[in-house]
Computed example of a mutant assay.
Amino acid sequence: MLGTFQKSNLRIEIEAEETAIRDSLLQPSQLQQWLWPLNLSSGLPEQLSRGLIFTSQVGPIPIQHRVDVAASNCLRFLLSQGIDGFHEWCWGEGWVQSRLEGVSLLPLSLGQTLSLLQLKKFLQAKQSS
């Protein structure tokens, strides 16, 4: 794999209930709404579960995701193709933590920061409606 090894661990506070955070991460229909610029493959089930494999795209770069853990407070993807590594999400009442490690040409830390901010914005908009 071409690229450099990168790792980042970020945690933010979000004014949202744990169930809202969980649904935003484990339900592909919601995940697709805020996880821009990634485009998820079509035909995904209502809820992510262990062993599921799907592809997302960042522009022309495909990233394969294999769901390694899908629990009530944790989600971990094993990544390949555009990123060789993993992305783990953990959450609770009012907080989300994202841990990302991998080899890639993509700026992973920047993408991780943007995705957390987009999740926060998505949940705030959902809560106010």
Rank of each mutant, 00 (worst) to 15 (best):
L106F: 03
T113D: 02
P28S: 01
T113A: 08
C74V: 09
S98C: 15
Q118N: 12
L117Y: 00
S115I: 00
E18S: 14
G94N: 13
Q57M: 15
L106A: 09
L75F: 02
L79E: 09
F54G: 10
S109I: 02
L119D: 00
T4C: 06
L110D: 12
N73F: 05
V96P: 06
I12M: 06
R50V: 13
S109H: 04
F54R: 07
K7C: 01
P45M: 04
R50F: 00
T4Q: 06
L52P: 13
E17N: 08
W91D: 08
S42E: 14
N39Y: 15
V103H: 03
V69R: 08
L2N: 11
N39Q: 11
E18M: 12
W34E: 03
W36F: 11
L108T: 06
L114D: 02
K126E: 10
L2E: 12
N9R: 12
F86I: 04
Q6S: 04
V67L: 03
W34K: 14
S80Y: 04
V103P: 01
Q32V: 00
L75P: 02
L117T: 00
Q112C: 01
P28I: 05
L25P: 07
L78D: 06
S129M: 07
W36R: 15
R50I: 14
V69G: 08
F5V: 08
P60D: 09
V58C: 05
A71N: 15
L10S: 12
F5P: 07
M1D: 14
S42C: 11
Q118E: 06
W34Y: 05
Q97C: 13
M1C: 04
S24M: 00
T113V: 11
Q118W: 10
L123R: 06
I53L: 12
Q33I: 07
T113H: 15
A125Q: 06
S98Q: 11
L52H: 13
H87G: 09
L108H: 02
T19G: 07
G3Y: 00
K7I: 04
C90T: 08
R99H: 09
G43P: 01
W34A: 11
L52S: 13
L31K: 03
C74P: 03
H87Y: 08
G59K: 12
T19L: 10
G111T: 01
W36N: 14
E17Y: 05
I21R: 10
